[in-house]
């Protein structure tokens, strides 16, 4: 009898001891899930953000790459994590696509948005001996459909979609330039330089080193107006008279129903992170587009992106 009472007391003590701990979030290391492989653009930004966020929160942040399935694995894991603030993730463009393509029921409503920190426009790249401008590329493709092949990501990935959207906007069937699915940008670039395919669609920072090396030439950027970081690259509209633009984006989010105080703590920390000189110098060194939006604006951005990408996918005939 005495023993049970003691046990109850002990349990109660344990309970009361553990409650206030919640208030001082974070009290242990945080896991940041990256749905893409180490070495890619998303991974690089995630590691930078993680290390700076670590300074703000005072607890280690472990970057975990959960790759595969065109990012679905990682995104699913973020969405399914316990909403306690100890598992967060980087969510990317592909989230705006999955449910339209029918590859996963996931959409932005499965997450608690924390901050948008980057947007990058898609671009069209060829070998130096390839078509001299976008107009010529499209003309060649129209002349001999299927002769020029393109790559840059898996089927239904943002680069694929950007390409399909471009072809669609140019009044061409999407299989005029067949898409060669690969596991990311590195094998796609390898295919381009080894003369196995003719076009690579991706964001400019991903190919910057190859462009500097003279192995790759960027024909056009899919933006409404020129990117101040790349003033020499024409927009699609300037290069070929086609009205088409599409941007990739990256942001930090947690699973749905993150406690409001945790979300606020994270959002406030992110607001400081994007102002840090380390973040700015990293982003500009790697030529990533700096575009910050706080939790509320990010939510709005996601809803808007979802709608725009949906329209694009349907137009390209990829919607399920």
């Amino acid at each position: 009898m005495k023993l049970t009472r003691r046990l109850v007391l002990a349990a109660a003590a344990v309970f009361t001891l553990s409650t206030p701990v919640l208030a001082q979030y974070p009290e242990r290391p945080i896991t940041l899930i990256v749905p893409w492989a180490a070495g890619g653009g998303t991974d690089a930004t995630a590691r930078t953000v993680a290390s700076l966020l670590e300074q703000e929160l005072g607890k280690p942040i472990n970057v975990v790459n959960r790759t595969g399935g065109g990012g679905i694995i990682g995104h699913t894991e973020i969405a399914n994590a316990k909403p306690d603030g100890y598992t967060l993730g980087v969510i990317t463009t592909e989230l705006s696509l999955y449910h339209w393509l029918g590859t996963s029921p996931l959409d932005y409503k499965n997450y608690t948005p924390i901050a948008l920190y980057n947007t990058d426009a898609q671009s069209i790249n060829v070998r130096p001996d390839g078509p001299k401008d976008l107009k010529e590329l499209l003309a060649r493709a129209k002349e001999k459909p299927g002769s020029l092949k393109a790559s840059g990501a898996n089927r239904g990935g943002a680069p694929h979609l950007a390409m399909a959207g471009l072809l669609n906007a140019s009044q061409m069937p999407v299989d005029t330039v067949p898409w060669v699915p690969t596991d990311g940008i590195t094998p796609a670039l390898q295919l381009l330089t080894s003369n196995a395919i003719a076009v690579v669609g991706t964001t400019i920072p991903e190919v910057q080193a190859m462009v500097d090396a003279g192995e790759v030439r960027t024909l056009a950027i899919m933006r409404a107006e020129r990117d101040p970081s790349f003033p020499n690259v024409p927009t699609v509209k300037e290069a070929a008279g086609v009205d088409w633009y599409l941007s990739s984006w990256r942001g930090i989010a947690g699973p749905k129903d993150l406690p409001a105080d945790v979300a606020k703590r994270l959002s406030d920390a992110m607001a400081k992170v994007v102002e840090k000189p380390e973040f700015k110098s990293f982003m500009s060194a790697r030529k990533f587009g700096m575009d910050y939006a706080d939790a509320q604006k990010f939510a709005k951005f996601l809803a808007d992106a979802d709608e725009r990408f949906g329209t694009a996918i349907k137009a390209a005939g990829l919607a399920k």
Binding site: A37, A38, G39, G40, D43, A44, R47, T48, T186, L189, Q190, Q208, A209, M210, A213, E215, F282, A285, R286
Partner: peptide, 18 residues
């Protein structure tokens, strides 16, 4: 070429850029 061959060099390339 900034094309990393494995996870280790991928991380190293990131640090170089930084």
């Amino acid at each position: 070429f900034g094309v990393p061959g494995d996870a280790v060099t991928a991380i190293a390339v990131g640090v170089l850029f930084m």
